[in-house]
Design a protein around this nucleic acid. Structure first.
Lengths: 248, 248
DNA sequence: CGACTTCTTGAACCGAGTCAAGAAGGGTGG
DNA sequence: CCACCCTTCTTGACTCGGTTCAAGAAGTCG
């Protein structure tokens, strides 16, 4: 990339060197774009004042008034519900993900965000201000936020294709791979295993399937040696074959 | 809105006064945010050098090299295909829509764009430059582009919910209403009728349904007096009832 | 340990897909 | 302007993936 010299001009911590002292949540953010030490410090400071909420808590009620928040631990999701009570999950928020940053994703941020597990999160208003004012000293942060938004949109498109054109089996396989990839990016995958603390009911609301069918689909994946589930953790023993199943 | 005085400081043409001399395509764009006369002129000038392509032509091959284009007439769509040939349409592009403007939507712009009818479109590089440099004299244009991107994302989310949670009947109803609303925004709906020049096959690729089922669903809507189709035009005789059917 | 949530399995049902074949349009060349 | 061809629409019959209903087993948390 053509910005190499800029990177060199301002020394940046990154990778393993910093990872040791870094809570998992911050690894994701800093993996999206190179951050200066100062930027990283800003994020870490905002993460200090974290709040814990229980499963089911509403992290963001939806609508236009959005308090930016950074997820530090646990899973949350963006939800849309139909008048008759059916729910569709638009996407999952994992440690390191944020809401209310990036201006681009406003329609997404209009959907309520609900905690799927116990969730630790912090007010990220300070970061929103910094990103918003667009000062060049905080380029890295702005770029990280933008990249995060792009990745989320990308996942949204993938999800659209899956819901429109793929079978339950394919969908589930693809979703598992995608989710693993998200954790992998943050360096949180250990021998193909990653956290999966959500109920099958919830997974169904994301994949557009009934609980019963999610269960059967997961069983099938297990039977075929493509998936192992132990309390709150998933392992994908054969990612390549799973990718074939997922198609695309 | 708090910007009223700014609007007054720079006289802007808008609404019927300008509509008379305005090709349909440009109405949509100028309906998204107030444009100065100069901005409007820029758009109009870029629309002068339009190119016509036939049904099936590729307006944008996909990937990262994007030549910004403004659709002036006809329908196009963004497409994703699976390795086995199944296709999912991510969204339709109507006159007044553009690709390759707004930086936010990059993942969307990575999907190929294909003409569904004869399409007139113009190179919009000049606009992309103007929007990109972010000068305050062209605020209006930048805002219009941003609004367009937000609306598109909003539609994407709606579509996601439909594919995940709604029946063929509901989906189709909702899509018809949404499409009518798009034309309505550009002032192109005459007594509830709007252009609908695509095949049922294509509609199926958007709604995640087989041709056969699209056909049956449309029949049902017609039987129930919710839809009238005449060559290339759709009419929704009872939008309220249709909205109830669409749910949400 | 007890209460509640989550997972699992079976059986019946149904929305939507597939296959097939005929009818209706719509564009093109003679 | 008509005849022809090819695309698009339409309909019927059958199949199948996924839902629903129901009920029991296994976890999980206080």
């Amino acid at each position: 990339m053509s910005l190499t010299h800029v990177t060199e001009a301002r020394p940046r911590l990154s990778g393993p060197a910093r990872a040791a002292a870094t809570p998992p949540a911050l690894r994701l953010l800093s993996g999206l774009a190179p951050l200066t030490g100062a930027e990283f410090e800003l994020v870490r400071r905002c993460a200090l004042r974290s709040e814990r909420v229980q499963t089911g808590a509403v992290l963001h009620p939806g609508g236009d008034k959005i308090v930016p928040r950074l997820i530090l631990a646990g899973w949350a999701c963006r939800v849309r519900e139909l008048p008759d009570g059916r729910r569709q999950i638009l996407g999952f928020l994992l440690p390191g993900d944020a809401i209310g940053l990036g201006a681009c994703a406003r329609p997404l941020d209009r959907a309520p965000v609900v905690a799927l597990t116990r969730v630790d999160s912090a007010d990220a208003s300070s970061l929103a201000v910094i990103v918003g004012e667009g000062r060049s000293a905080h380029q890295g942060l702005a770029r990280a936020v933008e990249t995060a938004a792009e990745l989320e949109l990308e996942r949204l498109l993938n999800q659209l294709v899956r819901l429109g054109r793929q079978s339950a089996y394919e969908r589930t396989a693809a979703w598992l791979l995608e989710t693993r990839a998200r954790f992998a990016r943050a360096g949180l995958v250990e021998n193909d295993a990653f956290p999966l603390p959500i109920t099958q009911e919830t997974l169904g609301e994301a994949l557009g399937l009934s609980v019963v069918h999610v269960n059967r689909t997961l069983q099938q994946l297990r039977r075929e040696g493509l998936l192992e589930l132990r309390t709150g953790k998933a392992r994908l023993p054969d990612p390549d074959r799973l990718a074939e199943v997922a198609g695309a």
